[in-house]
């Protein structure tokens, strides 16, 4: 059996999820429609409580939508049990069975499906080989590091050869170094397995580096869907503009560099030290990061951040500077709704 023998698209149509009743009712996901293509690595990105995990859990069948439709492939799956959806999920906490060995954990989904012992062992070995777990097969999860446990969780998912992989912040328990390494491995895994990946994260670096496309959620609503570069270059709203990018986009108050009903946004790399520039500011902090310098300045329009080359002639702390940006690098958002105007 080859991994990824089948592919599947996932389609969400006006999916809403509400929790609680009456005055306590909370809308976790609000009329989200999203098409996730075959073999796509789709990232659901947003801050805590934006509904991204709830959305994923509705695809998994662990939560029922209050309204709307979920399709996997061509099949409407609202009433389909999780086990029949041809999906596998990797949880933030890994959800390994602590009393079973690594081998038993990986084999378990196959055992439940009645796969014979020999085939089970072979499949588990193959998954373990892919993820470099061969030496740990006899250990129990408690004897493994966070990164190794995470691999076991992945192995348990891939051994089932699902049409869709669901991942709920799988890297958030790992340290920064390991997170970086594992990001690359997951991208590689996606390339090797002809499956659809849906990946939930609040980490924009993960979103930017791993996703084929990114769906940005805010307060249960879908703000924007696009390639990471599109979302970065053309944020659909002031929220997306500020959420994506480190440091975030400088968002000027209405009326500054534009009309009163428009807010102008400028990415730090596009905010330039320009003699005679329209933004007067005083330098409050200079951060040397090696490959770049971040210049923080206080202006009448609020705090500004400019990204400069380390070789640039830098002002001193407390100096008055003038900053400006090219018109082509200015983003305009409706001052009331936050929606992109141009």
């Amino acid at each position: 059996m080859a991994y990824g023998a089948h592919v599947a698209q996932v389609r969400l149509e006006s999916v809403t999820k509400r929790f609680g009743e009456g005055d306590d009712q909370v809308t976790a996901v609000d009329a989200v429609s999203l098409d996730i293509h075959d073999h796509e690595f789709m990232i659901l990105l947003g801050p805590s409580g934006c509904g991204k995990s709830t959305l994923l859990r509705m695809v998994a069948g662990l939560e029922d939508p209050t309204s709307g439709d979920v399709y996997i492939g061509e099949e409407w799956v609202n009433n389909t049990q999780p086990k029949l959806r041809d999906i596998a999920m990797v949880f933030q906490s890994y959800a390994l069975y602590p009393h079973k060995t690594v081998r038993a954990n990986i084999e378990f989904p196959l055992k439940v499906r009645g796969v014979g012992k020999a085939e089970r062992a072979a499949e588990a070995q193959r998954a373990a080989d892919v993820l470099g777990l061969t030496d740990y097969m006899r250990r129990k999860p408690g004897q493994l590091s966070g990164g190794q446990r995470q691999r076991v969780a992945l192995a348990r998912a891939i051994v089932r050869n699902p049409a869709v992989f669901l991942m709920d912040e799988p890297l958030s328990n790992l340290d920064a170094k390991l997170r970086g390494d594992t990001r690359a491995e997951l991208v590689d895994l996606h390339r090797r397995f002809d499956s659809t990946f849906i990946y939930v994260t609040h980490d924009q670096v993960e979103a930017m580096t791993m996703g084929s496309r990114v769906a940005v959620l805010n307060a249960g609503r879908l703000e924007q869907v696009g390639t990471p570069q599109d979302v970065y270059d053309f944020p659909a709203s002031a929220f997306v503009a500020q959420f994506i990018g480190t440091p975030p986009m400088n968002l000027l108050p209405p009326g500054v560099l534009g009309t009163d009903d428009v807010q102008v946004g400028i990415r730090p790399e596009h905010l330039l030290l320009t003699p005679g520039g329209r933004l007067q500011a005083t330098v409050t902090q200079i951060e040397h990061l090696g490959h770049e310098v971040l210049l923080h300045a206080e202006s009448a329009a609020g705090r500004l951040v400019a990204r400069l080359a380390p070789s640039a002639a830098l002002p001193a702390m407390g100096d008055s500077v003038q900053l400006d940006a090219d018109a082509q690098h200015m983003h305009h958002f409706d001052a009331t709704t936050g929606v992109r105007v141009s």
């Binding site: 998994a60 999780p82 086990k83 596998a88 999920m89 959800a95 499906r113």
Partner: peptide
């Protein structure tokens, strides 16, 4: 998440009870 992971794997209640919950 253990119960949810098991549900995704197709484990029913009785099996989850004797194979996961009881041993733990």
């Amino acid at each position: 998440e253990l119960r949810e992971a098991a549900a995704l794997d197709g484990v029913g209640h009785m099996r989850f009870l004797y194979e996961v919950a009881a041993p733990l």
